[in-house]
Write a protein that binds this DNA or RNA. Structure first.
Length: 436
RNA sequence: GCCGCCUUAGCUCAGUUGGUGGAGCACUCGGCUGUUAACCGAGCGGUCACCGGUUCGAGUCCGGUAGGCGGCGCCA
């Protein structure tokens, strides 16, 4: 079939091929027959279209094949595009040639499926309309993140995935055999970014991140993608505004390129448009506790981290993502510095998404106080010797610097409105599930 | 780590007081010239997760084991 001009279903649905003879290739999405007529819904990467196959319009054996072919068989067909109100999308292909590329065996995924079964069949389920829509939006989001930082003068900087140190706490590291030694899968790009920020000043990266947290929730993955940034000569306030701009930039890109997919996912486009135009509020942790205790009649003690329940209650008061700053210093990682204006708190922030999607961004200024960091690492039972290279960064022309990480799957899940983060990545890895 | 729930056909589920295991979908065969996850008729399909106990008799009651799911904690 070399030399054949293949039409994409998108072009047909856009009305560009009406009354034209075309060639189409794809997969059988649905099929039903009625005596001398077969209706087959054809799917390609751009959409679905009804093909109407009448016995008299094509060779006998091709008609018989079209009756026999099961769902997910791959096909090459030719015919004429017609407007027809009886067709599901208002267009159909009246078929004059029907060639089977591969007769599919009975497809295991049928009408009723449980989430577990679909995860077992993930390699086949990613063909579904819902997952393809999510994957297209994910592709837009990943592209938007690169574009946002490159537009704003950042360099992409790559750190090792195999790392000797912890960043976010030792108990959640995945240990890997490294010749005769032990090494760990990256929990964060940050420590290496802090080395590079003194030469490149503005850097970002997006890549896989591994956390062996024993979490069984709709918001956790053991392997997820994090988009991180690090910038010199900046403070906490600067970076919270950059994070807000980034989220709005991502939203606008999705709204521009993925209206069709958002509709397939039943997402409220108007609501997303409103968020993309809004200012996101910044409040302190102390203010958040205040809202919970006064307006929600809760009894949250100052000093405790905000739990899922508290975050969700807090978000009932906001339509947009919210930045929460200045968490208590005791519950923060060793590299987050004390706020001189409010010494009980750290110069750090989380951005919380509405709708129960939780923390989508987390970041902080970076401590410049070597003795304080050593002290806090010791309290966690860490060997400070492994961090000497990191402390060197404070000894040779240190400057204020700051950075954050954005959870790609959480942003995908929030924008797509899907109820489990597992559907925001093609092949999820969780506490229990690591196949296929 | 803590708490709760589930396991019956390839898939989704029902199964009454303990008395010879059902439906829908899928698949096969037949019918139908406009279907919208089509419809009509027939067929195929079972170690009721596994091990043990109670009982004349267990899918059903009791105990254990395995696998799975959800939530919390922790985090992006």
């Amino acid at each position: 079939m070399s030399g054949t001009q293949w039409t994409r279903i998108e072009e047909i649905l856009d009305g560009k091929k009406t009354d034209k003879a075309i060639h189409l290739r794809g997969w059988i999405h649905r099929t039903r027959s009625s005596g001398n007529i077969v209706f087959t819904i054809i799917r390609d990467a751009t959409g679905t279209l009804q093909a109407t196959i009448k016995k008299d319009n094509l060779p006998e054996n091709e008609f018989e094949d079209s009756k026999k072919a099961l769902i997910e068989s791959s096909v090459e067909i030719k015919g004429t595009v017609k407007r027809d109100d009886r067709a599901p999308d208002g267009f159909e292909l009246q078929v004059t040639g029907f060639k089977i590329v591969n007769f599919a065996e009975p497809f295991p995924i049928v009408k009723d499926q449980s989430p577990e079964f679909l995860l077992d069949q993930r390699h086949l389920w990613i063909r579904s309309q819902k997952l393809s829509a999510v994957l297209k939006i994910r592709s837009t989001i990943v592209g938007a993140i690169h574009e946002f930082f490159r537009n704003n003068g950042y360099y992409e900087f790559d750190a090792p995935i195999l790392q000797p140190n912890q960043c976010e706490g030792g108990s959640t590291l995945f240990e890997v055999k490294y010749y005769d030694n032990k090494i760990y899968l990256s929990q964060s790009w940050q420590l290496y970014a802090e080395a590079a920020v003194f030469s490149l000043e503005k850097i970002y990266n997006m890549g896989p991140t591994f956390r062996a947290e024993r979490s069984k929730t709709s918001r956790h993955l053991s392997e997820f993608w994090m988009a991180e940034m690090e910038i010199a000569w900046a403070d906490l306030h600067d970076v919270t505004e950059i994070a807000k701009d980034e989220i709005r930039f991502i939203l606008n890109k999705v709204l521009k390129h993925n209206k069709r997919e958002l509709n397939i996912l039943d997402q409220d486009i108007k609501k997303l448009q409103l968020i993309a135009k809004s200012e996101f509020p910044t409040i302190t942790y102390t203010k958040a506790i205040d809202i919970l205790n006064k307006k929600e009649n809760m009894n949250v003690k100052w000093g405790k981290d905000l739990r899922t329940l508290e975050e969700n209650k807090l978000m009932d008061h906001f339509e947009t993502p919210v930045v929460v700053t200045n968490y208590p210093i005791e519950i923060m990682a060793f590299y987050k510095p004390r706020d001189p204006k409010d010494p009980k708190t750290a110069l750090c922030f989380d951005m919380i998404a509405p709708g129960g999607y939780g923390e989508i961004v987390g970041g902080s200024q970076r401590s410049l106080d070597v003795e304080d960091m050593k002290q806090r690492l010791k309290e966690q039972g860490e060997k400070t010797k492994n961090y000497e290279w990191y402390f060197d960064l404070r000894r040779y022309g240190s400057v204020p610097h700051v950075g954050y990480g954005l959870g790609v799957e959480r942003v995908v899940a929030w924008i797509c409105g899907i109820d489990n983060i597992k559907d925001a990545i093609p092949f999820p890895r969780t506490l229990i599930r690591f196949r296929p």
